[in-house]
Nucleic acid binder design. Structure first.
Lengths: 117, 117
DNA sequence: ACTCTGTTTCGACATCTGTCAAGATAAGCA
DNA sequence: TGCTTATCTTGACAGATGTCGAAACAGAGT
């Protein structure tokens, strides 16, 4: 059945040479899922465009209600993609570079990916 | 109230300097969403680990039924992450490097991102 | 015809999305 | 101190969407 499993030594290609383990997938998939909503993707993008972002700015940038934005931010927080801190009246959010690095590393370096097809 | 938008010339940073537009988010989010399931993440990983992967091998690698695997593959196909072709009895899947490149480009290279925190 | 492979259809069940209302925390002012 | 306002989060809810398996269907080879 199993077509001869390739033993490519090439360490270059998309998604990394060693297939993602079941445990890895369980821990990383929630991050992708969190980015799988247009509103959340834009939220992360807006937060990443600045060192920190105030929630009031984020709410103003979307046609969504405050609670909804807060919900999305909670999802992003629980996924480990962003973190926040309350300073006085306002709450500030910032991205966690190490989380994005993990995802980027998993996707590989596409610029160097062999144009296999 | 937007804190002064950074005018960093560095093209390096997380999620790209210009925030993702609404239209971009709508078109890219489905890809992340497709990767947001552990089974699909592993599927893409397994497919990417070889030039091509036969469905029979993929089904054998999961504790899920054939129809379920087929369903997940359809989601990945519709998201544009993989493509397939029937050759005789078997169906072969391969990843679309340009799609992964798009996602990776969006995530940027956070390792070189300013250690803002 | 028969078998094998893979997809599609259909249904049950669970999870997610977005809104309203209420709660928690902090600042401003008398 | 006490009252008021502003900011943000949480809880509860209806509607939409996703997950998965059983059965039925379609292609390719024997």
């Amino acid at each position: 059945m199993t077509t001869t499993r390739l033993t490519l030594a090439a360490p270059c290609c998309a998604l990394g040479a060693p297939p993602v383990s079941s445990a890895e997938a369980e821990s990383i998939a929630p991050m992708f899922k969190a980015l799988g909503d247009p509103a959340r993707l834009r939220l992360v993008s807006l937060i990443a465009a600045q060192p920190e972002a105030c929630v009031c700015d984020l709410v103003a940038a979307f046609p969504l209600s405050g609670p909804t934005i807060s919900h999305h931010l909670k999802v992003l927080r629980q996924a480990g993609l962003v973190d926040c801190e309350r300073r006085g009246t306002w709450v500030y959010y910032w991205v966690r570079p190490e989380a994005l690095a993990q995802l980027s590393a998993l996707l590989g370096r596409p610029t160097s990916a062999a144009a296999s097809r």
